[in-house]
Amino acid sequence: MRAQSILLAVLTSLGSSPSFAGDPQDLSTCQSLAVKGQPGLYLRTSSGQLLNVNGSSVVYEPEARLYYVGNKRPEREAVWTVRTKTVARSAKANEAMLWRPGIVTECSGGRTLESFGRDDRFVSLQRYYQHHAPPSARRRDDDLSRKFHMPMRNSDGQCTGRTDDPQTVGPLQEVYRFEDVNPGPLVVERASEPRPARADIVSSVYSGLTSEIAHVSSGEPTCFGFAAPLPTSATVGTQILGGIGWPFSRWERYSQALQDAQKWQPSKTIVILRELNGAGNGLFSISWAPQQ
């Protein structure tokens, strides 16, 4: 109650209602959460109900949305990374689902940033890890550069930094990689290497991995939404069909993931948040109750 009163007082003193960039539904949800005034992790169910989920058990819904509410208003625009790792009894993740909204930021030069479509945002762990590797082993992926990462302010306040520039955010492998997850062998490696599949580097216990970049404009309350976890295990067929591009309609990878999620039965999701140009961070755990 005290935090709510403080936040309301701050909002009133500013003489304006909070505004949030990105999804219109995120905007209204963040406005509701700002009124509640309690920092934490929330889940918006498909019926619109808002639940505080940190540590508590909630029923998993593939199209639910998660919200992080922080307790400060950044003086300059803030950029956050959100990674989720989900445990479930199904095939292990060999992809990560990425997202960054297509928004205009202080550093985008007035243009709307390009972003992934809902189907092409599923990228293999190899692509994701090689893009975020140390400089000597790094292979920059053009899609990840353009549609996932974005320009941001450097420590000197200039818009010369980038979310995938080690000089701006520090070692990329520490910021973006999923701890305790390593990409498994590629299909050609499994097919041709004389030794059995390299069990030592298979992608660990998780079957859903997501990574998002969120943006909070200067002076606005820290509140942003991100997707509930989905299974990110792709078969060879799905990957081949997923690569088919124009002029053919793209394989509905997202619909496939939603379909897989119906029988997914996740048990736990770990949410890791980190402010790239500030000291903010968060670690949450969500326990998923069995679906009805």
Binding site: D141, D142, D143, I244, F248
Partner: peptide, 15 residues
């Protein structure tokens, strides 16, 4: 060009 992105893919007109 529109729809051009990271490549190569197995079955892809852009590649």
């Amino acid at each position: 060009l529109p729809n051009f992105g990271s490549y190569p893919w197995v079955l892809d007109p852009r590649t």
